[in-house]
Write a protein that binds this DNA or RNA. Structure first.
Length: 284
DNA sequence: GTCTATGTTTGCGG
DNA sequence: TCCGCAAACATAGA
């Protein structure tokens, strides 16, 4: 569900909704496990009376930068939100009745609430004084200047794993999930089971371009919303993405490859459902 | 009604 | 280091 383009879309929508500048007056937790860093009671007490200063993204984390609104000498705080499979954020006016799957409600000073809804309850909130606690091991951002085709080639050269599980590993590269990995591998005409160490510099260059291409397209279309159920991706205000229309292979088993018309196949790689064109994408 | 699959991440055992 | 598996959960679809 929420991969880099979806998480970035949520961050942008939160900013557009005017969340920056709001002060958290009260927090309520209805599913304790969502709070990963302390008890719900400590979380609620700690986060209250903090102002939201900025909203940004790193990998698949939404990061809210907080500053104390009363004791100005107090330390800065960071709220890291990971949506995992089905987490959603919404901003509501007033205090409407709580939905079954709304697990956290932050009341804000302008008669609105930031609500966290998560049907499968896999999402996690981390309230920390230093975001590096969570972010340190994570790999480079795909759009970082320093993430060059050459760097990717070097990163791949020393790895013994195959491409698909490696690209899904957030400590290797940040932000990709099942959908965009399948799409990037199709774009670059690489097989998901290609050993990373066998990828040539030319292929690494193609993969680098493909990763940026599919992510950029996802961003432009404000994310991918598959199907109609509540387990799908919706940004703030239940808005769907429209990148699903741009997918070339993901969940398109038996459909013709857009490049060569060979039917797309599905297989399991690294325990993950994987889609590819058996004609365009062959193992090195 | 029942059974299976599921877009993410983490932790364990081999 | 790497891999497979299970778990954290609820729901859609067969």
């Amino acid at each position: 569900m929420p991969e880099l383009p979806e998480v970035e879309t949520v961050c942008q929508d939160l900013r557009d909704a005017g969340l920056c500048g709001s002060i958290i007056t009260q927090a309520r937790v209805h599913w304790p496990r969502t709070i990963a860093t302390s008890s719900p009671a400590v979380f609620c007490k700690t986060i209250a009376k903090h102002q939201i200063m900025a909203i940004r993204r790193r990998a698949k984390y939404i990061i809210l930068e907080l500053a104390p609104s009363e004791n100005l000498a107090g330390p800065a705080l960071f709220l890291l939100i990971h949506l995992r499979m089905t987490g959603q954020l919404n901003i509501v006016m007033g205090t409407p009745k709580r939905d079954t799957h709304e697990h956290i409600i932050l009341s804000l000073n302008n008669n609105t609430q930031l609500r966290y809804k998560d049907t499968r309850k896999f999402g996690r909130w981390y309230l920390v004084s230093d975001p590096e606690e969570k972010l340190a091991p994570i790999g480079p951002e795909p759009f970082a200047k320093s993430f060059t085709p050459k760097l990717l080639a070097t990163m791949l050269a020393t790895r013994s794993r195959v491409l698909k599980p490696l690209l899904l590993d957030q400590n290797f590269l940040a932000g990709l999930g099942n959908i965009y990995v399948d799409e990037a591998l199709w774009e670059s005409e690489l097989h998901p089971e290609t050993p990373a160490s066998s990828v040539t510099p030319e292929q690494a260059k193609r993969l680098h371009r493909a990763i940026r291409l599919v992510l950029k397209r996802g961003l432009k279309n404000m994310g991918t919303t598959l199907g109609t159920g509540k387990a799908n991706f919706y940004s703030v205000g239940k808005r769907s993405g429209r990148n699903q229309d741009q997918l070339k292979v993901f969940r398109r088993t038996d459909a013709p490859c857009p490049r060569c018309t060979t039917p797309i196949i599905r297989l399991i790689v690294g325990q993950r459902s994987t889609h590819l064109c058996p004609s365009c994408q062959v193992v090195n």
